[in-house]
């Protein structure tokens, strides 16, 4: 059994349709991840990369991650230490990429949070606690087919386990 995945941090709140060029701008795609991550969200919030701290939670509206299949859009957030993304809705490739890379992505339509609110996210149970507002919110469940991958910490650890089991 993997340890339960729980993430706690400050909320960074964004609007609808945060696209993959905002998350991982095309002009920096050839660069190492650390350099790319410094430009994450700069088109909508130039100070984001310098203010975000490990464990912080990104909150988005509908269509979070719309656009390219580039998984650097997820990896830039992981590189900055983002602990989870909660949104009203995700673009399909971003959602798959996030869970495959071990970044909890949760759909929650009624989450109310302002920048700086202290959030705690329980991906497996499917709930979010806003400690600042003392409110709890339910999330849409992660599809069962993906829960194994999420519980393993992502697709690579899941594949390692599966291939290891086959070899052993």
């Amino acid at each position: 059994m993997s340890p339960p995945i729980v993430r706690r941090g400050r909320a960074f709140v964004f609007g609808d349709q945060i696209d993959t060029d905002v998350l991982a701008p095309g002009p920096y795609m050839k660069k190492p991840l650390a350099e790319l991550a410094r430009h994450c969200m700069e088109a909508v919030d130039p100070g984001f990369a310098s203010r975000v701290r490990p464990g912080d939670i990104v909150v988005g509206g509908v269509g979070f991650g719309i656009g390219s299949s580039r998984e650097q859009a997820v990896q830039a957030l992981l590189e900055l230490g983002v602990g989870a993304v909660v949104a009203k809705g995700f673009a399909r490739i971003f959602y798959r990429n996030a869970l495959n890379l071990g970044l909890p992505a949760l759909v929650c339509e009624d989450l109310e949070a302002s920048e700086g609110d202290e959030l705690e996210v329980f991906p497996v149970e499917g709930r979010i606690v806003n400690h600042t507002r003392r409110r709890e919110h339910a999330c849409e469940p992660i599809p069962a087919a993906l829960m194994d991958v999420v519980a393993a910490g992502g697709l690579m650890p899941w594949l390692e386990r599966r291939l290891g089991a086959r070899a052993g």
């Binding site: 580039r70 998984e71 490739i93 798959r96 990429n97 495959n100 992502g154 697709l155 690579m156 594949l159």
Partner: peptide, 13 residues
């Protein structure tokens, strides 16, 4: 369908 590179890795395997 389109997917990201980690999922492509899984699909290749």
């Amino acid at each position: 369908v389109g997917v990201g590179a980690t999922e492509i890795t899984g699909a290749l395997v």
